[in-house]
Design a protein around this nucleic acid. Structure first.
Lengths: 255, 255
DNA sequence: GTTCGCGGGATTGTCGACAATATTAGGCAT
DNA sequence: ATGCCTAATATTGTCGACAATCCCGCGAAC
């Protein structure tokens, strides 16, 4: 085999995506990954629940190969743990780790919003303001779950504006790991209202295209988020566990 | 199948590793992963070089399954790209992306050194100072490559002190992606000497157990690193490419 | 000369079977 | 009842074979 010194780039280069990330494969195999990931992130499994390849293959109607690949990916992604010859489990992130994740998230979001402030367009601002309006509606309706979804969308919109692939990818990843905790923070009384105000402040800072102000507004916001997270963790420590998918107790492994 | 509400933790829980990360499998399968990863990170392949599963299986003396799993992992890790039905290539990180990565690295290192300042022990400080001494030796010997290795070790030591698993993992990952660029930054004349001084400042700040001072020292250091990286990128744009593993030219794909 | 279509070869994706390993259950001695 | 050894079961890890897909070159039509 001749060894070329510099290999050619892929032939079918992407049509018009210069600095873009891997939109990943659209294989039938990888939608098994996507669905499994979704089920895990959205709480379809319990923490530490075993993920048996054969079962998943049936449940997701995919081959074991596909499941295996998905598990390897999810392991690398931090959503499951795999031990040799002992299979995979959905990874339980500890309280401490949740705080670590949030800590990293804080600084990444600051970095990102700073970039966003330098690139935000009029259209972007319009979209952000629309997001705010919809959030206000949810708040008025007393729909904290709906608000939470819009909240995530709001932040993702800022990531998109910032166009910082590296930070964006890391943030998305971290968020999916700690999502179980995010659920709990919703429950704090009055949090939604102040969150909305903080979001408004961020948008205004972005509108001024002021990186420092934007970062400050974001920091302010995230400081409260961290605070709320700590509150949620403490509350959970003193109260019966509540899980989105059912009642709570300790049960043995199936089988 | 009965559905337990909360699954049991793994039986053979780790002996004494509370908040620790996955030391990962020690399978024979996963050392294929490790070796492939090593070869990529240490420049055994050219950017964009095709990674044919069958070839790798022979080269690493492993089954195609193992290679496949390794490629999936490395894809998720950002070291290779995989396109459906078109195989894997070692991922080429663009100049822009290298800067993005460094940008994220800066803030993560700041976060970490801040933690380290609050936890550093006398033993840690002794080890750090020994690192400095050895770096000084390499500098005196005019051995920038050796210095670079110790440099990496120095930073990793700080990660260990900080004991921030999340940030540490992200940093390790980012570093492996941008390692090709790190090589070039070594070449800047006089950089090694100032780098050493900056490292000394970091150690002193850590010795004072002062988070703010430590972060400031680290920021100072990394500002220069980013500067050097930009210099290296510019230099590379105007000079013939130099690759650690061989001469430079453009050649076609093999076959 | 250029474009289009069509094999041929190379490579990946997937399935099934089997080996390797861990986990559980049962029996036996104490 | 407890603890230990062994058999049985469940599950993962690996291999080989084959189908699916892509890439490339060749030749025909225009």
């Amino acid at each position: 085999m001749k060894t070329p010194v510099v290999a050619h780039p892929p032939r079918r280069s992407s049509p018009a995506a210069p600095g873009r990330e891997t939109p990943a494969v659209q294989d039938r195999s990888t939608d098994a990954y996507r669905r499994l990931r979704n089920e895990i992130v959205s709480g379809g499994f319990h923490p530490n629940e075993r993920l048996v390849e054969a079962d998943l293959a049936i449940r997701l109607d995919a081959g074991r190969s596909a499941i295996r690949a998905a598990l390897v990916r999810l392991d690398q992604e931090g959503l499951v743990t795999r031990e040799p010859n002992r299979g995979a489990r959905v990874r339980l992130v500890s309280d401490r780790e949740a705080l670590e994740i949030e800590e990293v998230r804080v600084i990444l979001e600051q970095l990102i919003v700073r970039h966003a402030a330098q690139r935000v367009s009029a259209t972007d601002l319009r979209d952000l303001r629309r997001s705010i309006v919809r959030m206000r509606e949810r708040l008025a309706q007393g729909d904290p779950m709906g608000y939470s979804g819009l909240n995530a969308e709001f932040h993702q919109r800022i990531w998109a504006i910032a166009d910082h692939g590296t930070a964006g990818r890391l943030l998305a990843n971290l968020k999916s790991q700690s999502i179980r905790f995010q659920y709990r923070t919703i429950l704090r009384p009055g949090r939604t209202a102040s969150s909305l105000r903080e979001h408004e402040a961020i948008v205004e800072a972005l509108a001024g295209r002021d990186p420092d102000a934007s970062e400050a507004a974001m920091r302010q916001h995230l400081r409260h988020v961290v605070e709320t997270l700590k509150w949620a963790i403490d509350a959970q420590r003193h109260q019966p566990i509540w899980l989105p998918g059912g009642a709570s107790s300790i049960a043995s492994d199936p089988g």
